[in-house]
Design a protein around this nucleic acid. Sequence first.
DNA 1: TATGAATGAGCATTCATTCAT
DNA 2: GATGAATGAATGCTCATTCAT
Lengths: 185, 185, 185, 185
Amino acid sequence: MDAAGRILLNEGIGALNTNRIAKVAGVSVGSLYQYFPNKEAVLGALAEREGIELRSKFEGLLRLTEDMPVEQFVDQVIHAMFAMRERNALLIRVADAHSGDPGLLQQRVALAESLRDVVRRLIQRRSPETRPVDADVASFVIVHAIQGQLAALDQGLQPWFMEREELVAELVILVQRYLRPHPEP
Amino acid sequence: MDAAGRILLNEGIGALNTNRIAKVAGVSVGSLYQYFPNKEAVLGALAEREGIELRSKFEGLLRLTEDMPVEQFVDQVIHAMFAMRERNALLIRVADAHSGDPGLLQQRVALAESLRDVVRRLIQRRSPETRPVDADVASFVIVHAIQGQLAALDQGLQPWFMEREELVAELVILVQRYLRPHPEP
Amino acid sequence: MDAAGRILLNEGIGALNTNRIAKVAGVSVGSLYQYFPNKEAVLGALAEREGIELRSKFEGLLRLTEDMPVEQFVDQVIHAMFAMRERNALLIRVADAHSGDPGLLQQRVALAESLRDVVRRLIQRRSPETRPVDADVASFVIVHAIQGQLAALDQGLQPWFMEREELVAELVILVQRYLRPHPEP
Amino acid sequence: MDAAGRILLNEGIGALNTNRIAKVAGVSVGSLYQYFPNKEAVLGALAEREGIELRSKFEGLLRLTEDMPVEQFVDQVIHAMFAMRERNALLIRVADAHSGDPGLLQQRVALAESLRDVVRRLIQRRSPETRPVDADVASFVIVHAIQGQLAALDQGLQPWFMEREELVAELVILVQRYLRPHPEP
DNA sequence: TATGAATGAGCATTCATTCAT
DNA sequence: GATGAATGAATGCTCATTCAT
């Protein structure tokens, strides 16, 4: 699984074949197949492991930001998502690698839902501090707005006009303004 | 090229092979290779054509929204991006299909830059109406926030709690608030 | 198909793999797969072709022996089956090669039935000359009694105590006596 | 060996691999290789054991039928061969499974010879009661005529027009008539 | 110019066999 | 002696690419 992840991240989908995975993992193909019934199972297990990790980190955020004002938790969520950039990128690539596989798709949907769920609960918990929003809708918009930035960076877009921190700061503004009760002066 | 696009959209990456492309196009593989040096060239040309189309639509938006207030042009940009959803999805899939190819990557970067450029110019043109922002940064954030939603929808996330129009409306709010001069009460 | 047959006959089931078939046929694996969807299809086609050949030879026997007395037609049938020894052996090996395949099994059953059918009709046609027998039962017994000899020879049993012709002559006696009306003195 | 036989009979050649054999036998592969140098040795030993069993049963028949008239001993032989149908089928399958193996082939030849030998001796012992035949030839014909029926049944040919007992009865007639001194009226 | 049969390297997977524990 | 994880050659099959017609 580690090997598969490493290949996917460093060499791309094109280099992801079972013999390569086995070699990088330092074992033989046969051994690979002793633990996984087929290639997709390797990717599935990898996706699940990374997904669980991601989810648990996010659930931790829920507890961590319990008493924070909106301003701060937005900051925390965005920083957390950027911190998990690589793990997230890996998951996107796994999904791409076998976009046809229904199991993998389901896993991906479940993960997206679970990330959104954390944000949704964070918003609901602070409803008095925010403008009235449908927490479902708002969480969807926020999560995928941030994912959009991560995807851009992950696809090789390296903006010369800003540092990573500037982007993060700007995203914080984007989301804070989106949630703020009275944007009018 | 049309054939490749059709296959990619309808049958997925798994069915995208040169013989299939040729058959769908109604020609022989040989003919395919008379016009394209290899498979990636087909995808590259497809990406380029779709990219040009997308770009020209966006340039048209520049002219179209020349005299509109911020509120309206944000609305226009977002609707335009959603209207081009399918064409955009195709481009994402092409990029996924051969994520290792440097030519394709460069094209993708160029397209993203060119989309962002339109938004950047739209913002610059209205700098008095917006809060003071780095137009480069703001355009990056906006374009990829929207792309994030499109990617989510394209990857099979079908939110049961909102219609497409609600999402669009919410995105308009997100971006408008982001650009508005004084969100503080 | 010829290549597959040749391998099966000369080198046995163990050597029967697609790359070998292609090499013996003087083509590449790819070409093999342009004409057959998979390995079993090659064997299936081979079995069908040989089966048809065998059947047509046997149907020919029906016409050929129309006016012959029992004595002579028994002789003809046995000689014919021995003449088709190799073709028959091939079919048995094909069936062995993929004994699990239901399609192949069905083909084998169909062929056996069709051979038996010819003998059955030959017997029915001469019912006055033979003892009263159930033509179904008798044809089954006769066909498989002869097949038993062929299988023995095919499996490498090379009896030192008789020539091929002696065996054939003895079989003729076996079958003639089996059909003869009054064996008692 | 038991395990190998069970697999061969119940699941077919396709499922016959060393790991499966070990698992069914309730031991580890390693243990299997402590007693047998390789896979073929397992099959060889199985074939030998079953062959010995078959042979001893047949030798028993020699003694048992010592004083019986031809009519009865033919009946006995045929019933015995049908009674050993499963054991015999197993042997045929072992031979099929590795038809290329020379050791296995030799064993098969030896077994066939030894079965024939019993019948040969039975015939010789009763030479006054039968027509004058070469006991070698006659035993070959008889044994393989019966084996032919067994093979047919074993390969999935299930004749709808007769019961097992009818076939046996008919075979008895076949062989009795074959040996009878004066079949002419 | 168009065709499509032919090619063969490459991939997923299996399984007989070994050997460290 | 027993174990079973590890091995890797071998197999069925795919598909980008070529080239004789």
